[in-house]
Design a protein around this nucleic acid. Sequence first.
DNA 1: CAAATATACATAAGAAAATTATGTATATGC
DNA 2: GCATATACATAATTTTCTTATGTATATTTG
Lengths: 119, 119
Amino acid sequence: MYICIMYSSELIKGTLKTIVLKLLSETKEMYGYEITQKVKELTDSKIVITEGALYPLLHQLEAEGVVTTETVNIGKRIRKYYTLTQTGNERAKEKLYEFADFINTMNILLDLKPSVKYV
Amino acid sequence: MYICIMYSSELIKGTLKTIVLKLLSETKEMYGYEITQKVKELTDSKIVITEGALYPLLHQLEAEGVVTTETVNIGKRIRKYYTLTQTGNERAKEKLYEFADFINTMNILLDLKPSVKYV
DNA sequence: CAAATATACATAAGAAAATTATGTATATGC
DNA sequence: GCATATACATAATTTTCTTATGTATATTTG
């Protein structure tokens, strides 16, 4: 499952794309399994991305020209590396900015403080 | 539409219940239309709740025993007031706590600072 | 060294939650 | 009088994720 222990799944919907774009904007090249492990590690297993959610998204991003892929043979197994295109880098920035703004709005609405800064 | 100008719809999915429960936990009694207007006002029209999203949710919450309703006649029109039950109050607290924790996790993951406090 | 677990991809059926559209009706402001 | 606001409701469709299934190689552990 996309979310494992902590959060009700409905809460997370729609953040997957933002998460993936952010990770790819930091680490030039990543493959699917690597992304799932990185998220698990960074969130202390609070957010666990499933393959059923991730792979279709990655394929969609490729179809949209947001990422390009390179398939590499690791022994007899394959590994598919994803890299952001120029469009992808802009998209990542937009998504992050949008998310930060959304958090600010939610903080005001739900009366949580302080607010998030995104520079 | 649920979201009007600012945010991509996917980002907001799943936050509606949290928003509604929070508002009801602050203002004993609210009716549907009032909730849509309050959210619009508090978010400066960045988040706009649609009837198609709100009413089914309110009905669901009633079926679950989270809220009780009271129908009042305003002239020849009806107004349906929603009030949190005891269960509902607990649910509201849980949802808010969960959301605050989720925001913290996302801040770490997306490297946004500072984090949100929920006491 | 066999079995369990981890690595690594993929897709398809179904569920959940919203969008979009439609419907009904009264009240108010210009 | 007409447009907009108030106030409810539901139904078809879409999006996005969950759950399940499938294939296959690599590594760890008892």
